[in-house]
Amino acid sequence: MCVFCYPELEPKQRVRMSNEYCMFLQLEDAQSKGGQLEGAGLIVPRQHRETVFDLTKEEWMATYDLLQDVKDYLDRNHQPQGYNLGWNCGEVGGQHIFHAHFHVIPRYKDEPLTGKGIRYLFKGSMNRREVTE
């Protein structure tokens, strides 16, 4: 059974807000002030969709609408100075749970990796591909 289709399967996971097509889920640890992933959560479609490419137009729009509400909530309760937003698609893309989920990660100016965005991991020398002919 899928922990995003049935959020109650993960005892530390909470539905913080939702609309007709999607939910914003957070683990309890995300509420800890100063924690590594303070405020972070996921927007997931209510219907099981394997990746973002499988979302309906209605689910896309509902994700957008919920993201605006989530940002208001996080700004009020956690006061981040920035955000990283993203989807992992497929095993090679880093997806570990095969139900589409949109990461909403607040960023704070006192983090050791302040100013490092999503591309930071991919641009490093550790991620260079072997050139083959």
Rank of each mutant, 00 (worst) to 15 (best):
F122T: 07
E133Y: 00
Q47I: 09
G35P: 01
L25M: 06
R129V: 08
L121T: 06
Q81E: 13
E28D: 14
F53M: 14
G86Q: 07
T63H: 00
R49P: 07
R46W: 08
G94E: 07
R46H: 11
F122S: 10
L9M: 10
Y108W: 06
V131R: 07
E91D: 12
L113A: 13
V3A: 04
F53K: 12
H78M: 08
W60T: 03
E59W: 01
K33D: 15
E8V: 02
P112K: 01
T132S: 04
K57I: 03
L74N: 03
Q95A: 12
Q31A: 11
V52I: 12
D72N: 14
M61P: 04
E130G: 00
D69P: 03
E91W: 09
N84D: 10
V92C: 08
R119P: 00
P7K: 08
E91G: 13
C89A: 12
R46S: 08
G115S: 06
R107N: 04
N19I: 05
Q31S: 08
I105V: 15
I97F: 05
E133W: 03
T56N: 00
V15I: 14
G86D: 07
Q81I: 12
D69W: 03
R14G: 05
M1W: 11
I105T: 13
P11S: 09
V104A: 02
P106H: 08
H101S: 07
G117R: 06
K109C: 04
E38W: 13
K71I: 09
L66V: 00
L55F: 04
L55R: 00
M23N: 12
Y6F: 15
